[in-house]
Amino acid sequence: MTVPRLFKNGIAVTGLVIIVLYVLIIIVSFFWLPFDPSEMNSQRLLEAPSFTSGHLFGTDEFGRDILSRIMKGTTVSLVISIAATALGASFGILMGIWAGYLGGRWDNGIMRIADVLFSFPSLLLAIFVMAILGENTYNVIIAIGIVYIPQFARISRGSIIALKSNEFVRAARSNGAGRTYILFRHLLPNSMAPIIVQISLSLSVAILLESALSFLGLGVQPPEPSWGNMLSSARKVMMLAPWTAIYPGLAIVTLVLGFNLLGDGLRDILDPRLRNVR
């Protein structure tokens, strides 16, 4: 009985520890990096990881230090992930509560738009948007944000509708409270649990989407290092130098796992009934 208990409490904590660790890496990377991440060195191309050379994760095909590039790339990944989630969540939630609260024609119209956006597989929609907007870091944020809008709209609409008919809303209305007041004071705070879980989920998926886009050459453009474009350039040399592909990938897996652990733990803590969200 003790193992699952520990696990249940430990799971969110483990996730949080991983995320905090990455945040620390970002802070450190502002002040100190083992090497200059963009400095090329033709003497040390594709050097294997070693202590003696100081290249703990080895070097890439231009002789750049992989560890330094991963550290620099952490900022890119996290910033994109947070900004895209914030973008998608704010538009999506606004649309969702608008639709859910006003109902009728508004609801119908907004949700049909969401339905249409839902008909595109996430990655395809992101790729399509990138193809239209052109490849750069800001557009990655917009593309992933657009993918998230319908997801947040649907979830927040659902919880608003479920809550709208509740007793306390009727009580507030009969006390003469206005629409906006009810919406922001009563409905929004009470529908936060599923939205919070969705946010932690979105943060992790955004990292995967960003890395996939950059891997395909449609995301963050070199020479700016991102985990995805490091893997992209590693493809040509990974047979000779596996470390070029292994370490950036591990960086992605660990951070995404961190968000997933946090999300799973939050789900258990906030609302046991949400266990089925994903």
């Binding site: 893997l231 990938g249 997933n260």
Partner: peptide, 25 residues
């Protein structure tokens, strides 16, 4: 159960293209 739950979360965290690249490798 513990192992498969962790495995499940890990599975969710693996980028498909990285996994593919490792397989090719």
């Amino acid at each position: 159960d513990f192992v498969s739950r962790i495995g499940g979360l890990l599975g969710l965290s693996l980028p498909q293209f990285w996994l593919a690249a490792l397989m090719v490798m």
